[in-house]
């Protein structure tokens, strides 16, 4: 594989769509990742990915666009997880477990009773750039602009809440509304991300760039900047490797993230940093 053949691949519309959507997912997931990781809500991505599996199965049975079906249902599921975890009787991890396992069961049930799908369901489980349509690119662009804008508008409030929830409440910030906003934005990111990395691996896009960035930075804003850089690099290089070497897209992206995390952690340890 030489440079010429890589440029030839880049001229294909499906590769261009994958790179654009991948870039947008990298930005939105890394913008949200720091708030979820530091608040110990990392696994919400995994739980919502299970829900999105069920919604994709439902959309394929109904012959509808998975994005249109998934976004409202996964958003509602994220609010339900939040509601259950706010009740003292159920912890956040248990709430995620309840919703995730129930959704997976529904997804498997729908798959087994349906007469087969026109699109391979495994494309959504493990990600495939072949399933990204032009309409997905436009929708991803709109939703990413929405996610980034809302995070920037409420940045100070989200940061205050992430560091010290009690102080955020005391200072008059609407923490319940902010939590709901964060949950819905996470749900949207998960749904967007399953096209590229799949439901099984999407949570890693939220977790990996942030935990790698945490080892490189002292400040909150600079951690977000590093997370965005790491996410963009891993997603774009993962897609290109996947296209050129015919590797699965999702696992290529996750493995690059894992390697980056290992290299950064080791480097910082050798330097006597925080890793």
């Amino acid at each position: 594989m030489n440079i010429t053949s890589i440029f030839r691949l880049l001229s294909y519309a499906f590769v261009q769509r994958a790179l654009i959507v991948g870039l947008l997912i990298a930005i939105s997931s890394s913008f949200l990742g720091i708030f979820l990781v530091l608040r110990k809500y990392s696994m919400i991505g995994d739980g919502l990915a299970h829900v999105s599996f069920a919604t994709v199965a439902l959309a394929l049975v109904l012959n509808q666009s998975p994005l249109i079906i998934s976004i409202p249902i996964v958003s509602l599921a994220s609010l339900l997880i939040l509601k259950l975890s706010e009740e003292n009787r159920i912890g956040g991890d248990a709430a995620i477990g309840l919703i995730a396992s129930t959704s997976l069961a529904i997804g498997v049930f729908i798959t087994s009773v349906s007469n087969g799908f026109s699109v391979d369901l495994s494309s959504y489980l493990f990600g495939s750039i072949l399933i990204i349509a032009q309409s997905d690119v436009y929708l991803s662009l709109i939703l990413t602009v929405l996610i980034v804008s809302l995070v920037l508008v409420f940045y100070q409030d989200l940061f205050a809440m992430t560091y010290d929830l009690d102080y955020a409440k005391v200072s008059g910030r609407k923490t319940k509304r902010l939590n709901q906003l964060l949950s819905i934005l996470t749900a949207i990111t998960i749904v967007l991300g399953i096209r590229v990395v799949g439901t099984m691996l999407i949570s890693s896009l939220i977790i990996f760039p942030t935990v790698s960035a945490l080892r490189l930075s002292n400040g909150f804003k600079s951690t977000i900047v590093w997370a965005v850089i790491i996410a963009i690099f891993s997603v774009l290089s993962g897609i290109l490797i996947s296209v050129t070497l015919d590797f699965p897209t999702g696992s290529s992206i996750v493995l690059i993230n894992a390697i980056l995390f290992g290299v950064i952690s080791l480097t910082m340890k050798l330097k006597g940093g925080s890793a």
């Binding site: 720091i34 560091y163 010290d164 008059g172 930075s217 600079s222």
Partner: peptide, 30 residues
């Protein structure tokens, strides 16, 4: 918003939390 609150001790015990002193003081501004 007119009430200032000082807790007993550092409210976040995560020593690696990525926030500078400047960023923490800034959260007092609503």
């Amino acid at each position: 918003e007119d009430i200032g609150y000082l807790p007993q001790r550092s409210p976040n015990q995560d020593k690696h939390f990525p926030a500078t002193v400047y960023e923490i003081i800034q959260t007092g501004i609503t």
